[in-house]
Write a protein that binds this DNA or RNA. Structure first.
Ligand SMILES: [Mn+2]
Ligand SMILES: [Mn+2]
Ligand SMILES: [Mn+2]
Ligand SMILES: [Mn+2]
Lengths: 219, 219
DNA sequence: ATATATTTTTAGACAAGTCTAAAAATTATC
DNA sequence: GATAATTTTTAGACTTGTCTAAAAATATAT
């Protein structure tokens, strides 16, 4: 059974929300992510349940079935491969790729995506540091932490961003911070959790709203 | 004003039909090409006329406005560039590209298509020999003729196919005929217009339904 | 020129996906 | 545990793009 573009977007939203909360995914959470009204979401949940892509019990949250999870992960695989393509082959910067990838992820052609994978030399991560699921839906999880939880005195490598909005990515570009940047934690302010960091031999102070959006790994 | 995927497909259909007939494009011709009923076409024609993409007078044929023509040609440009990409970069054969290009042609991103153009080294023709319109909607017309109209005793180069269905292209592959193949016309049968040709040092007889679908240029 | 055939348009209906407003269920509060 | 606030679902409507069946216009044939 083929999935429509809209159904695919719902599955992706449900998948992403379910990654952050363990419990069933609520109607309102989906509505917020999809930017639709809760009543529209309820309608769609019935359709997805009919297609055995989610388990849905009225008034309880929903969960992806294995079939639904595989469909969602396949869309995410395509999204991230296209983002790599745009950056590596078409000179896009990492803050320009998301919207185009949102369109490209719905193109249906297994050969297209397998060949793209090969053209890009089987990348494991997208331009924002997110892992690219393999053909079987397996995702390689790494032991990254959020920068706000890093320890004073330690040095880290930047391995990913959480917020990949253009504004945030441009802030990082301005300070020459990207994947692979070395970040040494000089000090952590108790009052507002802001951090003093040494990056590229310069000292920079970041507020909590920024350090909450960077993934790092201990060197 | 943004165009929907469906509107774009109608504009493309109208453009292609108008290339073959000079007169206004009829409702039925569009219905046949789009594979929809005439009543559906009438509904869409009203929408396209409201958007100033076509001129439409009830019971008379329709014509593209300049705005409509530019939109159609832009979709065709994208379609053909994607076809080149699929063949040159992703190892597709020329009979596999059309359906995927039908999807990709609707992706909206000027930067994407300009960068793709550069990646492919600004190709002038797609894998089927069709010209790729430039950024301004200009199309380079060449002096090709249909093989069925070629003269006995002359030698030609194959420069394009008209029918780019998978079946026809596979027939050509089987006989090692492609763009650039040299075709010498040995004889033309009066009775059924079939032609005896020398291609790749071998003699081959082609029926009119085949010679009607190959574009050639005198050497 | 009149009758017939074909093409095109209109009228009314349907599916997908969305909305608003109201009802029902769940959760939070006192 | 009753009441209030929040969440979720239902009911009914709208838009886009499609269909069938019937009416209107145009084209063809005698
Ligand atoms: Mn993205
Ligand atoms: Mn990404
Ligand atoms: Mn094509
Ligand atoms: Mn082509």
């Amino acid at each position: 059974m083929l999935t429509t573009l809209t159904e695919e977007n719902y599955l992706k939203a449900i998948y992403h929300i379910s990654q952050t909360s363990k419990k069933g995914v609520s109607t309102n959470a989906i509505a917020k992510k999809i930017d639709a009204k809760a009543s529209s979401v309820t309608d769609m949940l019935k359709k997805l349940a009919d297609k055995n892509l989610i388990t849905y019990i009225k008034y309880k949250g929903v969960n992806l079935t294995e079939k639904g999870r595989l469909t969602a992960v396949d869309i995410i695989r395509k999204h991230r491969l296209w983002e790599v393509f745009l950056v590596d082959k078409l000179n896009f910067s990492w803050d320009e790729v998301h919207d185009v990838a949102e369109q490209l992820e719905h193109i249906k052609s297994p050969k297209l995506i397998n060949e793209l994978d090969a053209l890009l030399d089987f990348p494991t991560h997208d331009p924002h540091g997110d892992p690219i699921p393999d053909k079987n839906g397996q995702i390689q999880r790494t032991d990254k932490i959020v920068l706000s939880q890093a320890s004073v005195g330690e040095t880290y490598t930047c391995v990913g961003v959480i917020d990949s909005s253009s504004d945030f990515l441009k802030y990082l570009d301005k300070h020459q911070i990207g994947l692979g940047s070395k970040i040494h934690v000089i000090e952590k302010e108790d009052f507002d959790q802001s951090m003093s960091l040494e990056i590229n031999s310069k000292t920079i102070v970041m507020s909590k709203s920024i350090t909450n959006n960077l993934f790092v790994k201990k060197l």
